[in-house]
Amino acid sequence: MSRVSVNGVDLYYEERGEGLPILGVHGTPSSAVLWADAAQELARHGRCITYDRRGFHRSSPPVPFESMDLVEHVDDAAALLAALHAGPAVVIGRSTGGLIALELARRFPDKVQALVLLEPALFTIDPDAAAWARNLRQRVLELASGQPGLLAESVIREAAGDAAWEALPAGLREMFAGTSNAVLAEINGHGFDLSDDALELSEEDLAGIRRPTLIVSAEDSVGAFRAVNARLSGALPFTHTVQVTGGHVINPAHPAVLDFVDRIAGTDRAASWHQSDGT
């Protein structure tokens, strides 16, 4: 068990392998627990670092624990990389973690060598996706009204389907339920996908993220995620896109991701990537 103190909180993290730094950023609700198998595989391709974001599972929450803002999580990721002398890194973000990864690359470009975005939750980039996210926020709050402990379960059921929740082992359901306070804090905070004022990035903002980027979509995800990815593939300067089987919880160590990481490890300059198609 390893911990590092950054920005007033203690973050739990795990580190495996050596070489090219790889940072895994989990979604909401979630934990590095769900990245354990992927981290073992990623460690064969570089120095893999996964962590529980502030307030989630084994990392400490802020005090008071009433709200959390996107900027805090971005600052935590940057500080974690700095504390571990691990930048610039290939940053792999899943769902809300992808939102954090994008902002990390925009605000701290020196910390990021490349991005892997597994259906990032930047819903404001597409009108239909933004409407879906607003409805999701409302449904989740209604479902968990008076029962805040159900927030994490409600998010998973609404975003990934009832079957995804029912398939979880009892221990993971308990872990997810324990993150409900963090889910509520994000909803009450600023900039997150389910916040009242979700992050909006302009075309100029996105064009300024000049890092090789792999964008991954899943065949069985809801249309909002695919719409976001389609918009991002046209807005970010250096992208390659792939579609994989399954649903929203995409494997961070999918062969397409491993191939991308190996390509990044084998080049020193993002300029070797052609603009737009990433080939």
Rank of each mutant, 00 (worst) to 15 (best):
H254N: 11
L81H: 12
P109A: 01
V155Q: 07
V91S: 08
A235G: 00
H190S: 10
R53H: 10
L168A: 10
F56D: 06
T124R: 15
V228L: 07
N188E: 11
E72N: 14
L258Q: 05
G149P: 00
G93D: 03
E41F: 03
P252V: 06
I209C: 04
H240R: 15
S60Y: 09
P255Q: 05
F238P: 00
F65V: 01
G191F: 05
L104K: 14
F238Q: 06
R231V: 10
L104A: 05
A89Q: 13
M1W: 08
V222I: 09
A130N: 12
R58W: 08
N251C: 01
P61H: 13
D76H: 11
V216Q: 07
F192C: 08
E18S: 14
I156V: 15
R157Q: 13
G87N: 07
V4N: 10
W165H: 04
V90D: 07
A82T: 15
Q275M: 06
R226E: 01
F225G: 02
E166C: 00
H248Q: 10
S154M: 06
L184S: 09
R106P: 07
I215Q: 05
R269V: 09
A270D: 07
R269D: 15
A101G: 13
D262L: 06
D10Q: 15
A270Y: 13
T28G: 02
F108Q: 13
C48E: 05
S154A: 15
D75S: 11
V140Q: 07
R54C: 03
A185Y: 11
R54H: 10
N188C: 06
F225Y: 15
R16S: 07
E203S: 12
S59L: 04
D37Q: 14
R47T: 07
F56Q: 12
L99I: 05
H248P: 00
W132L: 01
D75T: 14
T245Q: 08
R173A: 00
E158P: 00
E66M: 04
T245H: 09
G46R: 14
A235N: 02
R263P: 00
A152V: 07
V228I: 15
A131V: 12
R157L: 04
L199D: 02
I22T: 11
D193C: 12
L70A: 11
A114E: 09
N135S: 12
D69V: 07
F176C: 02
L20F: 03
S59Y: 10
Q147H: 14
S67P: 00
R107S: 10
A121Q: 09
V74I: 11
R107V: 08
